[in-house]
Amino acid sequence: MEAVTGKKEPKERGNRKSSRFWRTFLQQKYLYMMSLPFVIWVFVFSYVPLWGWTMAFQKYKPMPTASLWDRVFDQKWVGFDQFQRLFTDDQFYLVLRNTLAMSFMGLIAGFVVPIVFAVLLNEVKNIAFKRVAQTISYLPHFVSWVVVAGIVIKMLSTDNGAVNDLLMWLGIIDEPYQFMAKEKWFWGIVTAADVWKETGWNTIIYLAAMAGISSELYEAARVDGASRLRQIWHITLPGIRSTIVILLIMSIGHLVSIGFEKQFLLSNNLVSDYAQVLDLYALQYGLQMSNFSYGTAINVFNSVVGIILLFSANGIFKKITKESIM
């Protein structure tokens, strides 16, 4: 009898799960239909192109007139030669240093500043001022990096640049300082420009999370005599902890994939050794020099490291804070 019961129980559980799934599917069929276009988009643009990773293991040569099968598989396979070349290239480690340095600076500044700004906005009682400040703060997000780079270069210019004029007016410097020609300033300039551009936009998520905190908690804290700083520390920040952890995990997963637009637009020949990042390195050596296999190997390295960082960060935070995105 037990043997029979033991055989039927898993099957019965499977049937119950299946019926529960279809019942939920029928109840939420419109939500599934709405999400279907986005699932298709992700599949077409994120998963289908993965076949291109095969180029990292080939000595790829374009074959415009050949069939798709021949263009992909009728190539000379070289195994891990491209990766061996990558890891023995001194320029790669210089680029990796720049990428990690700007990534960590951007992660710290671009993560802390929006939280602080969101907390400050949340404490503003004047609704009109709060809305105006929030609108002004996230407008730079919609401005192209081409325009932002032009603004930054003009403000730091030695020819009537606003920053140099202010510093000379305050008596801090006697003559214009060439910010854009100093290698040691480049990482900070890129980080500051990125924070200015994205802080307002990133703040929206935290403000939405704060809106979900019960007002009764603040009322009880005020009755107990808690100051506004105490309310922020014991109610506001714990209330958005889940949001902070999830966004931090996702940000860590993109540490080595920071793009190249801002570095490309703000750099010049004087700071090139501090400006080149992995994505720009792949662009220059992959597309401009028609070395597609080498460029693909760089991007494969980016993706693999990103996945490792994502799973590692998720595992660590899951043990420490019990929060996870998987």
Rank of each mutant, 00 (worst) to 15 (best):
residue 63 M to V: 09
residue 153 I to V: 15
residue 100 L to E: 07
residue 245 V to T: 08
residue 278 L to I: 14
residue 84 Q to K: 15
residue 270 L to K: 09
residue 192 A to R: 06
residue 286 G to F: 03
residue 70 D to S: 14
residue 210 M to Q: 05
residue 1 M to Q: 09
residue 257 S to N: 12
residue 216 E to S: 12
residue 245 V to A: 07
residue 205 I to A: 10
residue 281 Y to M: 02
residue 235 I to T: 09
residue 93 Y to V: 15
residue 158 T to Q: 10
residue 193 A to H: 01
residue 102 M to R: 06
residue 174 D to Y: 11
residue 1 M to F: 11
residue 44 V to Y: 05
residue 53 W to Y: 15
residue 243 T to R: 04
residue 204 I to F: 03
residue 145 W to A: 06
residue 293 S to P: 01
residue 90 D to R: 13
residue 75 Q to R: 03
residue 326 M to E: 06
residue 292 F to H: 08
residue 172 I to W: 12
residue 143 V to R: 00
residue 93 Y to R: 10
residue 34 M to L: 13
residue 58 Q to Y: 06
residue 161 G to E: 07
residue 322 K to F: 05
residue 318 K to D: 13
residue 37 P to A: 10
residue 158 T to A: 06
residue 218 Y to G: 02
residue 88 T to L: 05
residue 4 V to T: 12
residue 166 L to A: 15
residue 79 G to F: 01
residue 104 F to P: 00
residue 124 V to C: 14
residue 118 A to V: 09
residue 94 L to M: 11
residue 287 L to G: 05
residue 141 H to F: 09
residue 88 T to D: 08
residue 197 K to C: 07
residue 101 A to Y: 13
residue 242 S to C: 08
residue 202 N to D: 11
residue 227 S to E: 03
residue 156 L to H: 04
residue 14 G to H: 04
residue 145 W to Q: 07
residue 300 V to D: 01
